[in-house]
Design a protein around this nucleic acid. Structure first.
Length: 163
DNA sequence: GCCAACGTTGGC
DNA sequence: GCCAACGTTGGC
């Protein structure tokens, strides 16, 4: 039974970790750590699969929007920062035997030739169903439908390989 | 920098 | 197990 390709959107504040930081990472790959929201955790731990497409979204920028395309290269694994007492994301209630927080590894595939801002997304009625534009939506890791994935790629002038 | 929306914590 | 207080997110 072939698995259906899934798509996601991951938010990051560029001051903390930008698209360029991802591109500059060894192998253009990074472990997505520091997520401390249970729903986002469940998504990364249980749902995101190797090869899934990821929109890399810059939040708290002027303007916020989708900057590039990435892919999941390693599925959910315990986030090491939860065990590090000195780390910002330390969680005293987590232990290696009983991890609480998970992350995935993603790899940059390519930048979108044209940035797709939040305003652009809100302005396209084909994208009304995206969690991103729902009121009060704050999830840093969220699903993207097949239709929405293709629409945003088109808006961004994506000429890269199909994911 | 403001603040609405939302999630989590902890006293009871 | 309720819910007020608190902390965080993220657009504006």
């Amino acid at each position: 039974m072939p698995k259906k390709r899934q798509y996601w959107l991951m938010k990051s504040e560029p001051d903390a970790f930008s698209w360029q930081d991802l591109v500059d990472s060894p192998g253009k790959t990074t472990f997505w750590d520091g997520v401390r929201n249970y729903q986002a955790r469940n998504t990364m731990r249980d749902l995101m699969k190797k090869g899934d497409g990821v929109f890399f979204y810059h939040s708290r920028t002027k303007p916020p929007g989708v900057v590039g395309v990435a892919q999941v290269v390693k599925e959910g694994a315990p986030d090491p920062t939860q065990f590090d007492a000195k780390a910002k994301y330390f969680d005293a209630k987590a232990s290696p035997e009983n991890p609480r927080w998970y992350g995935v590894e993603i790899k940059a595939v390519g930048i979108l030739p044209s940035y797709v801002s939040l305003e652009d997304i809100k302005g396209n009625c084909d994208l009304d169903e995206m969690p991103l534009v729902q009121k009060g939506q704050r999830l840093s890791v969220q699903p993207v439908g097949e239709k929405e994935w293709q629409t945003v790629l088109k808006m961004g002038g994506w000429k890269g390989r199909k994911i």
